[in-house]
Amino acid sequence: MGRYVRFMSLWEYANPVKFIRTTDVVLPWVSVLAVLCLVVGLIWGFFFTPEDYRQGSTVKIIYLHVPAALMAINAWMMMLVASLIWIIRRHHVSALAARAAAPVGAVMTLIALATGALWGQPMWGTWWAWDPRLTSFLILFLFYLGYMALWSAIEDDDTAADLTSILCLVGSVFAVLSRYAVNFWNQGLHQGASLSLDKEENVADVFYFPLLVCIAGFVLLFIALVFLRTQTEIRARRTRALIAREQQG
């Protein structure tokens, strides 16, 4: 039970409390902003943008597909950073935030895959092609599944945090390797970047601005969800600690 006692010590206890207090203030604002951006961006995109001359009305899927795909990758990045912070600074909130972000990232990956398949059907004539980007996302989804499964399989909190952090680091390296391997393996059907700084490749302005609003909405939604879920993880752990202490004496 030593680790629970350690969890109760002042420094480690103060930080989660401060985190909950701060996020309690911030969370409503972020949530409202997220909903606002999503509603405005999606309505703007869905009702008030023209059709693309080649893709017809399917271009409207971009407002979901691209932000979800971005967040799928960024969520993993955030987990990587949080894992590093946990390994180096032993900051409990950081480990729990990584855990909280994983399901959100997995759902974003799923959205990107599903909308991609629905978009691919009319455009490429098939639901699924072993296109490098689609394949990479499928592999990323597997990484998310493994990461979440490892978290829930280990009972001891600190061990779970340590092991998942290392898995996240190793997984990141292999995810990048897979990306290049998959590129090597099959040249794809996918269109180029929709948001690169290179203007030539970019989508047209009419689609660009509502897309930016939608991306902002997805980012804010992600932040709000991670805050909320991290709070939940902190509370769940504190509950476990208190119950353990009750049983002890």
Binding site: I139, L142, L145, G146, L150, V170, G171, F174, S178, V182
Partner: peptide, 15 residues
């Protein structure tokens, strides 16, 4: 769980 963790890591080698 071991299979779930290891298989995605095997992808580049397999390819």
């Amino acid at each position: 769980l071991l299979s779930l963790l290891v298989l995605p890591l095997y992808v580049p080698t397999l390819i």
